[in-house]
Every structure is written in C-alpha cells, then in structure tokens.
Simulated scan of single mutants.
Amino acid sequence: MTIAVMGAGAVGAYHGALLARAGHAVTLIGRPAHVDAVRAHGLRLQTATLDVQVPLAASTSPEAARGAGLVLVCVKSGDTEAAADALRPHLGADTLVLSLQNGVDNAARLRARLAQPVGAAVVYVATEMAGPGHVRHHGRGELLIEPAPGAAAVAAIFTAAGIPTTVSEDVQAALWSKLTLNCAYNALSALARQPYGRLVQAPGVAAVMRDVVAECRAVAAAEGVRLPAELDASVAGLAATMPGQFSSTAQDLMRGRRSEIDHLNGLVVRRGEAHGVPTPANRVLHTLVRLVEDAAG
C-alpha cells in the first residue's frame, strides 16, 4: 500500500517505520531536520527487541501525499485544520484519512475540511523522538479504529505489520477514555519533569489523578459518553506498563514547544463550562502548563 504520514513525530514515525518494514511504500512528512536524517540514513527504530535503520521516503511538503491510498494524520491537535488544508489539493477521492491524534474531536475537524473518508483511531503506544531520524518505543502499540470505507483492510495491513488493530463501534468512548488517561498524566509529568513510574510515587499525585478522572467522567457523561467502570483502575495501573515514559506534554515542554494541553485538560474545562460541570483539577493543571509554556516564549 502507498501510505503518507502527515506529521512524522514519535507516533507517526513509529507507525511509518513498522509499515515500511512490512513492505509498504511509506513517506514521512515532517520537519526539515528529521526529514534530512531519514533521507540520509533511514529512520532508526529502537524498541526493546529491535534497533534497526528503516529505509523509507521523507519530505517536508504535503504534496508528498499525492497518490497515497492511506494518509495517517499525526500532527498536534492544534495543527489539525492547517494539515487538512495543506493535504486537500493532493488527496485522491478515495484516499482514506486516519487520525492518529490525541483528543476526541480531530476526526470531526478533519471531516469538516476534507471530502475524503476520515476515520478516528485510538493510539495506545509510548514513544519518543530521541533525535532527528530516531524514534524510540517504550511500550504497547495497539490501535482501535472506527468503521470507515477500507477500515477493515487497513486493520489487516496494520496487524500484519506488527501493529495490532481492531475496528470498533466504541471508538468515541475509547477516545474519551484515552483523553482521561492523558489528562491524569500529561500535565503532571510535564510540570514535574518525571516519567510515569516515578511520578505516581510522589505524595498526593494519586489523589490529584482521581480528582481529574472524576471530572473527566462527569464531562463525558454530559456529552453522552459513558466511560467504563474500570477506567480508574486503568489510570492507576498505566505507570506500571510505561514506567520510563515521559508524557507527550512533558516532551514538548522540554523541547520548548507548545503542547496539546488546550486539547487535553483544556478541552475538558471548555466542555465542562458548556455543560455546567465543575472541573477545578483540570483547570489548575491546564493553567499551570500554559504558564510554563508562556514563560518559555
């Protein structure tokens, strides 16, 4: 399959590398330093069992998506509309666009700007960019995608490439569940500059996470989304599965970049306000991360 990855950060590069290793024609679309490194040496994929250079194409231009049967959108949530506008002239009528992004509304925002079929995916993977052209995997790696034209074929392709993928009608609830996990961990990991394993051992952290989860559950219910009862246990147990992982928000702040906090805790605050649901824990975490971002310029 011909596949383009729009936004070749840690998530995009990881999935692109596995698909390329499985024999698909993959093009990463990303930042110049990353693209230059991939063009020169291939993408270094480092996991617990692999450390390989994966040859694949790379470009800084969205035009590189022309001719792709599948486009994975992996940009930050704040760049969703800009990515859709940049891709639009280069997509075929039947190109499947799949959002592999944090947050709960990116697929809807893509659909508002694209005529092509768009599917949402829930990404369960811990990765980081260890440098230009170098992605490091820390844990998990499965996908959940919503039904869309071609979704079943894409799920089979991903699974065969080592990315266990399931097509599910429950993607919206899964997106809200993942949002809740991110709201519990991302800001705290960023503010403390701690990986999950050390973070959860600090006094008071577990209680703050419980408050965040309770607020997310209340807002989701107001949105008509019922979160699973076992979500609290999933949040509590996440650190054990990814002890060395820094949140994506922490990685952004450590690199001096804007994070997706407006689409994580910030989204919960905004939706809570719309429904009259109080969200004080999420509001404090959102505000503190924005203060750190503003201080960094």
Rank of each mutant, 00 (worst) to 15 (best):
Asp211Met: 08
Ala107Glu: 08
Met129Tyr: 03
Arg217Lys: 13
Glu230Ala: 15
Trp176His: 10
Met209Phe: 01
Leu227Lys: 07
Gly224Phe: 11
Ser234Phe: 13
Ser168Gly: 11
Val167Leu: 10
Leu191Val: 13
Ala115Lys: 02
Ala222Tyr: 04
Pro203Val: 12
His138Trp: 11
Leu114Cys: 13
Gly131His: 09
Leu179Gly: 01
Ile163Asn: 01
Gln116Phe: 12
Gly119Gln: 03
Gly119Val: 14
Asp211Pro: 00
Ile163Glu: 05
Ala107Asn: 00
Val154Trp: 10
His134Lys: 01
Ser189Pro: 00
Arg111Pro: 12
Gln116Asp: 14
Cys183Phe: 01
Leu175Pro: 13
Leu144Lys: 07
Gly197Phe: 07
Arg210Gly: 15
Asn106Ile: 12
Leu199Asp: 04
Ala233Leu: 11
Arg210Pro: 14
Pro164Val: 07
Leu188Ser: 06
Ala148Gly: 08
Glu223Gln: 11
Arg198Thr: 14
Ala202Thr: 03
Ala115Leu: 04
Ser177Phe: 02
Ala112Ile: 06
Ala214Ser: 12
Ala115Gly: 13
Ala130His: 06
Phe158Thr: 04
Arg198Ser: 15
Glu215Asp: 08
Cys216Tyr: 09
Leu143Arg: 02
Ala207Trp: 09
Ala233Met: 07
Ala121Gly: 15
Asn186Ser: 15
Ala151Met: 09
Ala148Thr: 11
Val208Pro: 10
Pro132Ala: 02
Arg198His: 13
Gln172Phe: 08
Arg140Phe: 14
Pro147Thr: 00
Tyr185Leu: 00
His134Asn: 00
Ser168Asn: 08
Gly204Ala: 08
Ala174Ile: 07
Gln194Trp: 00
Val167Trp: 02
Glu230Leu: 12
Val123Asp: 05
Ser168Asp: 13
Thr159Gln: 12
Leu110Gly: 01
Ala190Asn: 01
His138Ser: 10
Gly197Asp: 09
Arg217Ile: 14
Glu169Ala: 12
Arg140Asn: 15
Arg226Lys: 09
Val122Gln: 04
Val118Arg: 02
Cys183Glu: 02
Thr180Tyr: 02
Val104Lys: 01
Val104Met: 10
Pro117Met: 15
Arg113Asp: 01
Ala120Ile: 04
Asp105Ile: 02
Leu179Ile: 02
Arg111Ile: 12
Leu114Asn: 07
Ala202Ser: 03
Asn182Ile: 00
Ile157Gly: 08
Leu144Met: 08
Asn106Gln: 10
Glu215Val: 01
His138Asn: 03
His134Asp: 01
Arg111Val: 13
Val205Asn: 06
Val235Phe: 08
Lys178Cys: 14
Ile157Arg: 09
Ala173Ser: 02
Val219Thr: 10
Arg113His: 11
Met209Gly: 13
Ala161Gly: 05
Asp211Leu: 06
Phe158Gln: 11
Glu146Lys: 01
Ala126Glu: 11
Ala112Phe: 13
Ala153Tyr: 10
Leu231Trp: 08
Ala220Asn: 04
Glu146Met: 00
Leu175Phe: 00
Ala156Gln: 15
Leu175His: 03
Leu231Ala: 13
Glu128Asn: 05
Ala222Arg: 05
Arg198Glu: 14
Leu114Asp: 12
Ala152Trp: 06
Gly150Phe: 08
Val125Lys: 07
Thr127Lys: 12
Gln194Val: 09
Arg111Thr: 13
Val123Ser: 10
Ser234Arg: 11
Arg113Glu: 03
Ala190Leu: 06
Val208Phe: 12
His138Cys: 06
Pro117Leu: 15
Gly162Trp: 05
Pro117Trp: 05
Asp170Lys: 10
Gly131Asn: 04
Ala206Leu: 04
Ser189Asp: 01
Asn186Met: 06
Val135Ser: 07
Pro147Arg: 04
